[in-house]
């Protein structure tokens, strides 16, 4: 039996989840900026936007977080580990591309070392995704073989009903089922006509791109210089990206005591690969942009069998100089393999 969540019941759901001790998070639009943020009631949610400016990545992998506190004494070294405080959360209204992004990064954070910061938050968070009924010029999930209603990475998928009445509930994981059992009496049995899912045209031939990227002679192609000439080397694309996951360790404090933090880092920065000798193996911006594309569509799938891109399009949507993955892959798919 399918179940329906009516929109006018959403406020009760938020209240119920909060009462059960969950932090409710969802898309929130402020004056000039939107993100996934904690809310106290359904009215604070903005479920009409295409996607928030920032992805949900920061909720699992914050831009900066403490890892340990150190004190160095004459004969001893004192280390106190930080762990994120336990917090059960439900993200209501995630976008399929954002949810997919988290699933894409799971193998990375659990590969040779299990990142407890990531997995604790993953395990404590229910991702309730709403399928997209609209898209913009930058959306490209279909080019990545995903879709505006992909269930990848979601605990619950909600399919919008016609006339904005609510959503058809599709529970996908035990975590999702538990959260929706909490509000079972607010759901309605039955089915209603669904709203049509957004149409996202395919923008490039991913397989052709991957074939080109895998050819070692293309590593030195002049293409990289041409395509990245206007790249200014900021980290807007990497930091907004749901799947970019590089980080840096920094000790803040003095020689004797301080905090070791984990901070977002970006392959766009010259400093990212700078050696202590002063030599930089990625000395130019084109080498850095090539790395970003190669990592996402060649090295990452080579290791984890999945592309490190979920097609949200934020890299292109917010690039200060109108670059992005779409343009690059479109250009590559027209090149001779």
């Amino acid at each position: 039996m399918t179940r329906i969540l009516l929109r006018d019941k959403l406020d009760n759901c938020v209240a119920r989840w909060r009462k059960a001790g969950l932090t409710v998070i969802g898309p929130v639009k402020k004056e000039t900026f939107s993100s996934y943020a904690a809310v106290e009631n359904a009215a604070e949610l903005d479920l009409s936007m295409i996607m928030p400016d920032r992805s949900i990545k920061g909720l699992f992998f914050p831009q900066t977080e403490p890892m340990l506190h150190y004190t160095i004494k004459k004969q001893a070294l004192d280390i106190k580990d930080f762990t994120p405080p336990p917090e059960k959360r439900i993200i209501f209204g995630a976008r399929p591309c954002d949810a997919s992004g988290m699933a894409i990064d799971d193998p990375l954070f659990g590969w040779d070392y299990k990142d407890n910061f990531w997995f604790q938050r993953r395990n404590e968070t229910v991702i309730v995704t709403i399928a997209c009924t609209k898209a913009d010029d930058f959306c490209m999930c279909t080019s990545l073989k995903l879709a505006p209603d992909s269930t990848k990475g979601s605990d619950v998928m909600l399919r919008p009903l016609q006339n904005n009445r609510g959503w058809l509930v599709e529970e996908l994981t035990d975590r999702g089922r538990d959260a929706f059992n909490e509000i079972a009496d607010l759901l309605q049995d039955g089915s209603e006509p669904e709203a049509s899912i957004a149409v996202v045209p395919e923008k490039f031939d991913l397989d052709a791109c991957v074939t080109w990227l895998q050819k070692t002679e293309n590593f030195e192609s002049t293409f990289w210089k041409e395509i990245s000439m206007r790249c200014i080397g900021c980290a807007s694309c990497t930091f907004l990206c749901p799947t970019c996951h590089c980080f840096d360790f920094q000790d803040e404090g003095d020689t004797y005591s301080g905090i070791r933090r984990k901070n977002w880092d970006s392959c766009s920065f010259a400093l990212f690969t700078m050696h202590t000798s002063g030599h930089n193996p990625r000395a130019t911006q084109s080498a850095r942009w090539r790395q970003r594309i190669m990592h996402k569509f060649n090295y990452f799938p080579g290791k984890f069998n999945v592309n490190s891109c979920s097609g949200c399009g934020r890299c292109s949507r917010q690039c200060p100089v109108d670059m992005g993955i779409t343009e690059t892959l479109q250009a590559i798919s027209t090149l001779q393999p």
Partner: peptide, 12 residues
């Protein structure tokens, strides 16, 4: 509080 230190301001 929203700053993510992407340094887009600097680079632009």
């Amino acid at each position: 509080s929203r700053c993510i230190k992407c340094y887009a301001c600097r680079q632009a």
